[in-house]
Every structure is written in C-alpha cells, then in structure tokens.
C-alpha cells in the first residue's frame, strides 16, 4: 500500500515583493522519514519551510498537512495543526527573558490543561532526552550555541509532535556537537516515530540522517528522492554539491 504524504505542496509560489523566491514547488514528505531539504545559500530552503508552515503566506499554490489544505485555513483550525508540529529555529529562538524550564513550559501550559507537577515531569524528561538535565534553571543567555539548540529542540518536542521541522540545526556548531544533535534527531525518529523535516546544507549531517532528499536550486526542485539516488544523480548542480562538499 502506498503511503500518503504527511506534507505536500503543489504549484507553490513564494514571493518577496516582486522577487519570486519559489517557483511552482511540488514536494511530498512521507511519515516516519527524515527528509532533508538542501541546496546552496539563498536557494529558498527556509522560505519553503516558512511558506508551508504559514509563517509567510504563499503567493499561490496548495499546501497540505495531514491531508488538509492549509493555505486558506482559519487561524484556530491551523493552530490545531500547528500543535502537532514542532519547529527548531536556526538560532533556537528561545525566549530570552525566561529560563529554559519556562521556555519548554510555554506550549504545555498554553495548549494543555496539565497540572504543574505533570508539566514539571514532562519538562525534566524532555530535557534529559536532549542531554540538558541540569540546565532547567538556566537562562538562554547562559547556554552555548549547541546547548541553546538542544533546549530549543526540547521545546519543539514538548507536545510530542508528529512532525518536527528543523531549520539548519547544525549551523554554527562544531562537528562533534553537530553529530550529537544529529544523533538526537535520529533517536527522535526511531523512538518517537516522528516525521522529521530538516533544512540544511551540511553534507556530513545529510549523510548521517537523511532518508529522503529534496534538492532546491534557484527556487526550483531539482531532485526529490532517496539519498542514494541523489548521490548517483547526473544533474550537474547536485553532482557538484556532493563532490565539492566531500572535500
């Protein structure tokens, strides 16, 4: 039986003013897989994610999440969909005025009626999952870049989302920290069976975690398929991406 995509776009066009950033994007992301959206800087990777999640309103086209068209969805209905999606932002986007504990408590307090003792337990477990057990009382400014991302990951998975979207999780991290973050993401997929979408251009990371690849170039999808197929691809842009990046 063919799996239904959990996220799909058809003819998605995104614009900043007059400039067209994404041109007729058709992609399918399947449940339980790690899909990596990759491409050079400025090719529209983050824009694609933000248009799918309606952080930017698409200019035209169709976006389906959990089989439901979302571009014209009312805000309360879309919020229900968002509560099943966790997002890890490029710089973590932790609220600087709150401790790590309070940051992770935000979605739990706002979207559930759980009691404080249950919330406390969930936060401790989630922090432990991202190896930050001792950081709950710290402020974001007291954490290193890698720790911030892990704390943000704990916030993103606070509500056990079905989909986790990570925008450049390895950017600015040393190879070891980056590898441990990848390990964590792989664990989330394995243990929690999450669908994970990752925007990145870090080759090492792609090799470690990708099940599927969506390669963007100048606002278009050049390739969509498995990592193995991508590596064998004869498309010049993809070939040079993997060749140059492997030095």
């Amino acid at each position: 039986m063919k799996k239904e995509p959990i996220i799909s776009t058809r003819g998605l066009v995104a614009k900043y003013g007059d400039a067209t950033i994404l041109k007729n994007i058709d992609i399918d992301i399947f449940p339980g897989e790690i899909t990596v959206i990759l491409g050079g800087s400025g090719c529209g990777k983050t824009t694609l994610i933000k248009n799918i999640l309606r952080l930017f309103q698409p200019f035209s086209g169709e976006v389906k999440i959990f089989g439901q068209e979302v571009t014209q969805l009312d805000e309360p209905e879309f919020d229900r969909i968002l509560s099943k999606i966790g997002m890890l932002f490029q710089n973590g986007a932790l609220l600087n005025s709150m401790s790590i504990f309070d940051n992770i408590a935000i979605p739990l307090e706002q979207h559930t009626k759980l009691s404080p003792e249950i919330i406390k337990k969930i936060i401790r477990v989630k922090l432990n999952l991202v190896n930050l057990a001792k950081a709950e009382k710290l402020m974001p400014s007291e954490l290193s870049g890698g720790m911030k991302k892990r704390a943000a990951l704990a916030r993103a998975i606070a509500l056990d989302p079905e989909i986790l979207v990570c925008d450049e999780p390895s950017a600015g991290l040393d190879p070891l920290t980056s590898a441990s973050l990848d390990e964590l993401i792989l664990n989330l997929k394995k243990l929690l069976k999450m669908t994970i979408v990752i925007v990145t251009h870090e080759l090492a990371s792609i090799h470690r975690i990708a099940d599927k690849i969506i390669f963007l170039d100048a606002g278009k999808v050049l390739f969509s398929g498995t990592l193995t197929a991508a590596k064998k691809s004869e498309i010049p842009e993809i070939k040079s991406f993997f060749e140059i990046g492997s030095f």
Binding site: T112, L114, E117, K121, I122, V125
Partner: peptide, 11 residues
C-alpha cells in the same frame, strides 16, 4: 500513551 500519560503514571 504520550509523555503526559507517562508523567501521570510516574505521579
């Protein structure tokens, strides 16, 4: 069961 459910069992 989800993480809230497990937290309840712990409780």
């Amino acid at each position: 069961i989800d993480s809230a459910g497990v937290a309840f069992l712990d409780e």
